[in-house]
Design a protein around this nucleic acid. Sequence first.
DNA 1: GAGGATATGAGACATGGTCTCGGAAAGACG
DNA 2: CGTCTTTCCGAGACCATGTCTCATATCCTC
Lengths: 161, 161
Amino acid sequence: MVSERRSSPHSDPAGHPPLIETLDRAGLRITGPRRAVADLIDARSGLFSAQDLLDDAGRKRVPIGRATVFRALDLLEELGVVERIELPDGGHAYVACEPAHHHHAVCDGCGRVREVDDHALTDAIAEIERHTGWTVSGHRLELYGRCPECRTTAPAEASRS
Amino acid sequence: MVSERRSSPHSDPAGHPPLIETLDRAGLRITGPRRAVADLIDARSGLFSAQDLLDDAGRKRVPIGRATVFRALDLLEELGVVERIELPDGGHAYVACEPAHHHHAVCDGCGRVREVDDHALTDAIAEIERHTGWTVSGHRLELYGRCPECRTTAPAEASRS
DNA sequence: GAGGATATGAGACATGGTCTCGGAAAGACG
DNA sequence: CGTCTTTCCGAGACCATGTCTCATATCCTC
């Protein structure tokens, strides 16, 4: 489980439109459970696990099946508005994000996640292709560290390279 | 005692010394099971899962407990000679590697893994730190694509950003 | 509305990994 | 070598995170 931290009850901290809109625009069925999951995600900020959503749902007395949460998450991931990321400790978490290609920086102080783009990385990959002979069709980059707010507070715990 | 010394078709692509030596040099106990796991890994190339090692062990009639395999893998990971990587499909796999910091490129044709270093990435990260105000203490980069041998054969399947 | 396509929920199953605990083996020492 | 302490091992229970199945409920279109 990923820790609980929410900011404003419903607003999209990073300015995303409500997730449910994405489903709608993609021409997918808007069902009660889907809407519920979308809302639960919108109400969070930063990292969360499927279990977190289930817990939230229980707390709010919104009955949703486990499988449904995973299915909704898959769907949203496919649409690019939710991403599953790997944590330094080997665990997983989900995070809502923009559909455009980007990477995530995860703060190990507060769990906040920030999107980062990667012009420089693109160049780096081109370079790698050039001298290894590989064709790189995809990549995954995650950054771990501390956000400006946490930088001055408690020291970070170990993180892997 | 396991007979078979690295019999893999593409053995030792990067010229690693036997893994068991790493344990020895680290001053850790060299026990039968640890040696067995080290040998099993040496005999492989590319990605493998804990289950693969267990299967190999069964095939060679080397009885090793599941927990022991995971413990040995943890140990080797701590020493930096084995790394656990995230696959594009969300699964995990292990791979033997050099202890120095680097990244992996995974071929989705043959499963081969190549180590890649990242001068350019280091610069890219410095750049990110500079204009986001974050302190990046660690990162994880994985590249997916096709190695030169597979590039000309069957087309790659989809892979994620 | 009615009907067919699709999604849902409950819970079994799968996978990958961790924990516990009694027993066994490694290494230190005399 | 024998004994002692420390560490490791194996078996299997346990756990977390997902996936699958299938009967039922729901959505959307006509």
